[in-house]
């Protein structure tokens, strides 16, 4: 039985369709990423789950109850926005306390204890008396997380929580958020446009594009068996090849470079060689394909002495070739 069910949600803003018959479900304790390019409707979906927007059609079932039209204050969730929306005139502790103080059933001591516990969880206890603008980006992000978690919400919503941070902090926070999420076993829905983030953090990914769900699956499934050319090229790099109504696709690392010319192999011209550490990416082209990506281990590239302008031969293993009929 799933914890959250999104049933046939449709949302329009005037004539613009933001969500078109979107359905998905989230299991209890799971971290699900909604992944898609900007404008695909992912943030709108999150706001509908939060109750900040109301769908034109469809249902949101949370914990077995229809909550489609429930107001945000009655839904018991925590939310972290891309901007964090920390109250700048309150300290870190003040931010965390702001929501807790509304809970009439909690005693003063409990409120205090819970806010400190939340800050300990995100390792910010020593900064509790600072104001948000005095913190680094990562600390601000963790303050927002503590504020959201302090109320013991039954689920957590993260709207692009890491995209305002620099690359290094971002990678570090990915695992921190994931660790906290697992230790609390809190159902979490995170919106992101960053495929690396989705692949590394999510238990399952909902890939969206143009107001519809393209695919739902584990990171492995999404990467290995993309259900459409869109998913294939949005998540990771993919060579896409179209013949009449059939689209073929293969990942750059699955293409095999061979030395000798077989009649089934494809002759391509090397345009650019890019050293990427353990892997080397080769940008090649043939008669009607302007750009083909090939990833091979750097050692092998060295051994083969790949040079710009050279011709090389590619083998496409059938088991890694994906096919879709339009």
């Amino acid at each position: 039985m799933s914890f959250l069910e999104i049933r046939n949600i449709t949302k329009r803003f005037n004539e613009q369709i933001a969500l078109n018959n979107v359905s998905a479900s989230v299991k209890k304790g799971e971290l699900v990423c909604i992944l898609g390019p900007s404008g695909c409707g992912k943030t709108t979906l999150l706001r509908i789950i939060a109750g900040l927007e109301t769908a034109n059609l469809g249902q949101i079932i949370i914990d077995g109850k229809d909550q489609t039209y429930t107001q945000p204050k009655d839904r018991n969730f925590g939310i972290v926005f891309q901007s964090y929306a920390l109250f700048p005139n309150m300290t870190v502790l003040g931010n965390v306390l702001f929501g807790l103080k509304q809970r009439r059933e909690l005693s003063k001591e409990e409120v205090h204890a819970r806010s400190l516990e939340a800050l300990r969880l995100v390792d910010l206890l020593e900064h509790k008396d600072k104001y948000p603008r005095q913190l680094s980006g990562g600390q601000q992000q963790r303050t927002a997380l503590a504020r959201a978690l302090a109320l013991s919400p039954s689920y957590l919503l993260l709207d692009e929580p890491l995209s305002a941070l620099d690359a290094k902090v971002r990678v570090k926070l990915r695992s921190e958020i994931k660790t906290i999420q697992k230790s609390l076993a809190i159902t979490t829905i995170m919106v992101t446009h960053d495929q690396d983030e989705a692949l590394t953090m999510a238990d399952r990914i909902i890939v969206m594009n143009n107001a519809i769900v393209e695919q739902i699956g584990t990171p492995r499934e999404i990467y290995d068996c993309p259900s459409s050319a869109f998913v294939a090229s949005f998540v990771g790099t993919m060579n896409v090849y179209q013949q009449k109504s059939v689209t073929y696709a293969i990942r750059p690392e699955k293409l095999e470079v061979v030395n000798r010319h077989d009649k089934y192999d494809l002759a391509v011209n090397v345009n650019e060689v890019e050293f990427k550490g353990p892997l080397t990416r080769i940008y090649a082209s043939c008669a009607d394909a302007p750009e083909i990506y090939i990833d091979i281990p750097s050692e092998k590239a060295d051994a083969m002495r790949v040079r710009i302008g050279a011709t090389m031969f590619l083998k496409t293993p059938q088991k890694h070739l994906r096919r879709w009929t339009v």
Partner: peptide
Amino acid sequence: DSEFECVSESMGV
């Protein structure tokens, strides 16, 4: 920040 209100609402403030 236009999201102050959203955050508050989510916390039942």
